[in-house]
Design a protein around this nucleic acid. Sequence first.
DNA 1: TAATATACTACTAATACGGTAGGAATACAG
DNA 2: CTGTATTCCTACCGTATTAGTAGTATATTA
Lengths: 145, 145
Amino acid sequence: MKLSTRTRYGLRAILELALNHGKGPLQLKIIASSQDISVKYLEQLMATLKSGGIVRSLRGSKGGYILAKAANQIKLSDVFSALEGPSAISVECLDDNSYCLRAADCVTRQVWVQVQEAVMGVLESLTLQDLVDRAKEKGNLDYQI
Amino acid sequence: MKLSTRTRYGLRAILELALNHGKGPLQLKIIASSQDISVKYLEQLMATLKSGGIVRSLRGSKGGYILAKAANQIKLSDVFSALEGPSAISVECLDDNSYCLRAADCVTRQVWVQVQEAVMGVLESLTLQDLVDRAKEKGNLDYQI
DNA sequence: TAATATACTACTAATACGGTAGGAATACAG
DNA sequence: CTGTATTCCTACCGTATTAGTAGTATATTA
C-alpha cells in the first residue's frame, strides 16, 4: 500500500500555495523549484487539483495558482481524494456493493472498512490551515522571503 | 493508495486456516477453491506468509498449511507486514531518516506519520481470533462442513 | 513405488507510476 | 498590436509493480 508521489508532491505544492495566501497567484515554476519537482509533472498534478475544486488558476503573464477556498475550508481529505481517488485504500468491495455478494458478512472486508475509516478520520480532521500553523510553529518561515 | 490483492487474498486464506484450526493441515487446493484464487498464486502468498513466521507447512501427502501460532497471538499487523512490507503506506522519509534532511520539520511528513499510525493502530488492535469470533457471530459457519 | 503435497525458479501480460514533449490558448505589458 | 509569460491540453514513453502461469524438484505418506 504505497502513497504515490502524486499525492505527496501535490500536498507539498498546495501547502506552498496556502503559505503564500493573499500574495497573489503563485507560478508553477516557483513551486517546482522550491519543492524540486519537474514543472511539467507538477502541471498535471495542479490540473487534477483544479478539477477537484481545490485550486484556481490564472492564465497568462503574471498568472499562476491560488487556493480556491480559505485554507481552513480545505480538508486534507479533499486534497487526498482529488489526487488519489475517492477511496483511500482502493478496495473494490468497499465502494461497489455489487462487487461481491458476501460483502455484508465478510469479516475481512470489515477490516478494510476500519482501515479506510482510520485513514479518512485523520485526513478529515486536518485542514490546510492546520499545516500552515504547524509550519509557522516550527519557525519554518523561509517562505516569507 | 491501493491495497494489493496479495494482502486481501492472503488475509482471507489465513482466516480460513484460523477457522480450520485444530483439524490438521489444510491444503492449498481447498483454500484456493473456496476462496476462488489460483492455487499457483496462493502458493506464492503462502510462501511469503511462511517466511514471515505466520504459517507452517507440511509437505507431501496429507500435508498442507497450519497457523504457526494460536490465532489470538497473530495480529493483523503481522499478516499485513509480511505481505505488504514493513511500512503501511511506503513513504520513504518515514522509514529512512537520512532520506530527507528536512524530515524533522516537515509538516507534510507529519501528516503521513499520523496516517501510518492510524492504519497500524487498527491492524495492531485486531488478531485473527477477533476475525474468527466475528465470523462465528455472523453465523457464517459453512466452514465447519 | 505411486500418489499427493509443498518448494522453487522462471516467465509473462497488464497496469500504474513517474515523467517528458510539444504546441495551443490566454492574459498582460509595452 | 505585438511580444512574452503563463497555464492548458494531449500524447507519448520507460520502468516497476502487480497478478498471475508454468514446469520441475523435493518431501511425505501409504
